[in-house]
């Protein structure tokens, strides 16, 4: 049995060195950002000693950049910073809303975008929104950096594609053009403070005639990982996002869902409501492109 330790290096090289050192020594190390999941898990059973590697002081993880064709959001940017950033909110309203839905105001003051992704909960709110926005994970390791599409990053419940010695620095998102927008909706029994029973993130691109030329639909809390639903996207593409297309997208999401029944909802409920949310989110995203009031 080892002991607990905490390290908060202020640069990437030192952080990677700490990771490497633990890897070589076979000691458990856990990357630590907001801690809002980690500390709950520490109390809820996984109390094994480990080193917490706090990566909040690393400049790269604390950066938001909107220069060029894509936006970069550092992994340790907290939810509150996301929704306080008006430019980001304008660019990715759905993603920012998903961050605004996580936990309480207090949680949003600590919980990070990277943490939500790395925690890889099937119900993680930002994950479906990141899928819908075709986000790319920017990963650093001893032997250099690599990029990974977000849908390849989440590999299972609580599992991600980071190898020992690697750190998620942040997420790169292609900037949407003027005819693209997104939306994320989740269902919870209360108005706040719950884990999503189901979630749906949709990104939509319309042409000047209002016809959908591209769409991405991602659904969450209905399988072990967030799912992309190309069938739902296909149902929207080529349509004017009318009721028929929306219904078809809803049905596609319901059909793609592989939910379980648990304390938060039944299989049947999840299957049905994920369709409802897909339809509603697609409509919101389309209306956003059209500049219509929600």
């Amino acid at each position: 049995m080892g002991s607990f330790a905490y390290a908060a290096p202020d640069n990437l090289a030192d952080a990677l060195a700490v990771l490497e050192q633990h890897k070589n020594a076979g000691q458990r190390i856990q990357i630590f950002a907001g801690g809002t999941d980690v500390l709950v898990q520490l109390k809820a059973g996984d109390s094994e000693p480990r080193t917490f590697l706090d990566v909040k002081n690393i400049r790269e993880t604390q950066t938001i950049s909107l220069k060029g064709d894509s936006a970069f959001i550092g992994a340790t940017i907290v939810c509150a910073q996301l929704y306080e950033n008006l430019a980001l909110k304008e660019m990715f309203p759905g993603l920012i809303e998903s961050a605004d839905l996580i936990g309480s105001t207090q949680i949003q003051g600590k919980a990070t975008l990277g943490g939500n992704l790395c925690n890889a909960s099937p119900a993680g709110d930002t994950i479906a929104a990141l899928y819908a926005n075709k986000a790319i994970c920017m990963i650093a390791g001893k032997s250099g950096s690599r990029e990974l599409p977000v849908e390849d990053f989440v590999t299972g419940v609580g599992r991600n594609a980071l190898k020992p010695g690697e750190i998620l620095l942040g997420l790169k998102l292609p900037k949407p053009n003027a005819n693209t927008s997104d939306a994320y909706l989740r269902f919870i029994p209360r108005t706040e403070m719950d884990i999503a029973v189901v979630g749906a993130g949709v990104s939509i691109t319309l042409d000047d005639e209002g016809v959908c030329v591209d769409a991405t639909v991602a659904i969450s809390a209905v399988a072990v990982t967030t799912l992309l639903v190309p069938e739902a996207a296909q149902a929207l593409i080529g349509s004017s996002v009318d009721e028929v297309a929306l219904q078809a997208a809803a049905q596609a999401s319901s059909a793609a869902a592989r939910p379980i029944s648990d304390k938060r909802g039944t299989k049947e409920f999840r299957r049905k409501v994920v369709g409802v949310l897909t339809r509603r989110a697609a409509l919101i995203a389309a209306n956003r492109v059209k500049g219509e009031a929600e």
Binding site: P189, R190, T191, E192, M193, D194, I195, D262, K263, R264
Partner: peptide, 28 residues
């Protein structure tokens, strides 16, 4: 509307916390 003890088949409570034992919050 929401409050209840949820048990598994072994008689273990599944929602022993304020996250899933859902008392009303201010916005509810």
């Amino acid at each position: 509307l929401n409050e209840e003890y949820i048990y598994d088949e072994k008689g273990v409570m599944q929602n022993a916390g304020f996250l899933d034992y859902r008392i009303p919050v201010a916005s509810d």
